[in-house]
């Protein structure tokens, strides 16, 4: 699967959790999920669980530690596909 397609699906999953919907217009791999998109840190885990369901992958506890940006999510998912 192409990384651009993964990113599109990642952003779609993130959208309901984003408090600053305006920030979605300029989303890129470098966009920070907590700081730029204002996703509640407690909800980040729900986002990662949604990645598991969407891409049929299993994500370990430790993997969440490296998830800061949209690009981190894409890289994590791509590694597991």
């Amino acid at each position: 699967m192409e990384k651009t397609e993964i990113q599109e699906r990642v952003v779609k999953i993130l959208t309901p959790y984003v408090k600053d919907q305006g920030a979605l217009a300029n989303v890129s791999a470098a966009t920070n999920i907590l700081e730029d998109l204002k996703v509640n840190s407690a909800r980040l885990v729900d986002v990662v669980l949604a990645f598991e369901d969407e891409f049929d992958i299993e994500i370990a506890d430790e993997d969440v530690d490296v998830v800061n940006t949209v690009g981190d999510c894409v890289g994590l998912i791509a590694d597991k596909l």
């Binding site: 885990v45 990662v48 669980l49 598991e52 299993e58 994500i59 370990a60 506890d61 993997d63 969440v64």
Partner: peptide, 8 residues
């Protein structure tokens, strides 16, 4: 469950 889902 194992991993993240189990922890949650």
């Amino acid at each position: 469950h194992e991993g993240l889902r189990g922890s949650v």
